[in-house]
Each structure stands twice: as structure tokens, then as C-alpha cells.
Amino acid sequence: MTGAPLPEPAASPTATDAGVRSTQRAPRPRWRETLGLLARNPTAAIAAAVLVLLVLMAVFDETVAPDGPNEISVDDRLQAPSWAHPFGTDDLGRDILSRVVLGAGVSLRVGFLAVAFALVVGALVGLLAGFYGRWVDDVLMRFMDVLFAFPAVLLAIAVLAVRGPGAGNTALAIGIVYVPVFARVTRASVLGVREEVYVRASRSVGASDWRLLTRHVLPNAAPPIIVQTSISLAFAVLAEAALSFLGLGTQPPNPSWGLMLAEGRGFIDIAWWLAFFPGMAIFLTVLCFNLLGDGLRDVLDPRQRTLMAGGGR
């Protein structure tokens, strides 16, 4: 009974097992590598490029726009698209292209601010609730449930009624509405990652909770949050439209895509371009956010990364 039925390895205990050939990678910084890989994903690259263009357009709106957005010209009312007015004119004779360019600033700003707020607050709540569980989870998530239970528009109207209309307050109102969504997505993802052995392994070498959360749990819980972010950006642009339609968001005559869409709705039979072009702008933006979100999720996963880096060379 003293036999130890385990084969003794040959001279070196590492003979077969450690034979990883090192193909030295260029010591590029990680963010450069990420950008490089993103550029190799054509859909994501195009989406990113379009978004950059849209942001630039929003920043330099006054110089890009061919006409003043609020220049009324009664003679040019409801003109179909032409060389003079590529996107046509609205019922007050305002150039729609100019208004779409100007509206980009409002819509994108509100979208970004709202999602940034919802992402930071929601992800933090979800992270703490999912990681610590027990009463922390109960308290935070019941509070989120209360927020969730309010009809979204009612909640936003309440926020705007208290704080008054304006781009910043619109963003805040939309952001608050989306906080529970991010909290739930994050919590669900964290609940899975929390139980992973590598989190326990990290604890076993003495890592603090903060370190576990920031270095291990959050990065591994990130993919669904990234997807949620890109989807929410789309919804935030639409929500801004809804609030503007109700008269609580952007105030006329200032343009925003949502407001223009809402205003053009009444003319859809006789002048389709009033609603079509702002609608296309929203569609394009939302599509690009989603494609970029998908691409980012893939690129940030080391497993996919190796596949992509290997396949591209």
C-alpha cells in the first residue's frame, strides 16, 4: 500500500508544461492597442467616426449651419428639399438643415449628461448592492424599486416642475429616470462576478474591498453595463424629444431633434421632410451608439482581443 502511483516526470519538472513560446508583443500602451483593435472592427470604426463628426458639428454649430436656425422667412414656408435648402424648410420658413445642426448640440448634450449621471449613480448603487448584499442590497434596491415604480414621464415632469425647464435640468430628469435601470443591470452582473473564484483568490492575498471592486468586479461586470450605456444614450435622445414635446424640455424656438420631430408630426401628410430629417439624425446617432457599444464590449474582452489581434496579422 505504499505505492505512489504518480509518474515521476523526467529531469525537468517543467519540460512540457512550461513551454510557452514567447512571441514578444510590441510594448504599446494599452489604450493605443484598444484604439488599434477598434479601428480593425469596421462597423465600430465607422460608427465612431460618424459620432465624432456629429460631436464636431454640435461644437461648431454656428459656423457649420448655412442659415440662422431661427430666421423666419414667410415666403419660403414648407419648401421641399432643394439646393438652396437641402433638408427643406418648415412651416415658418426656417432652414431645417441649420436647425438639425443646431439641434445636435442640444440633443447630444442632454443625452450624454443624462446617461453620464445615470451611469455613475446607477453603477455605484448596483455595485455596492450587488457586492455587499444583505441590508445594503435591501435598502438600495428597494429605493431603486420606488424610483422604478413611478411612470418615467411623470417622474421627469416632477423633476422639471421643481427645477424648471432647461437643458441641464432635462438631462438631470432623464438621468434620474435611468438610474434604477443601470443599478439593476450592474447589480445583476456583479452578483455573478462576486462569486467568481478569482475574487476570492484576490481576497486571499489581502486585497481590500475597494481594490476588489475597482480592479476585479467592475471590469468583469462591465460588458452588460457598456451595452446598457449605448442603448440608454439612444433612449435619452428620444426621452428629450418626449419632454420637449410636452413643453418641458427644450423651449421653442430653440431647436432640438426631438422637438423638431414633434413639431413636424402635424405636417407629415404635406411636408414629410419636417419630421424625416430630425428623425434620421436621431436614428443615425442611436445606431452609431449601439454599434460602438458592441464594438467596445468586444475589444475590452481579452479573449476576443487575442482572437482579433491574431486574425488581423
Binding site: 473564484v197 478569482y198 483568490a201 476585479h216 471590469p219 468583469n220 481579452p302 479573449r303
Partner: peptide, 8 residues
């Protein structure tokens, strides 16, 4: 396969 963080 579970005890190493796949992202590090």
C-alpha cells in the same frame, strides 16, 4: 480556469 481574473 476560474481562479485567475480573465481581464488581467
Amino acid at each position: 480556469f476560474a481562479s485567475l481574473d480573465p481581464r488581467r
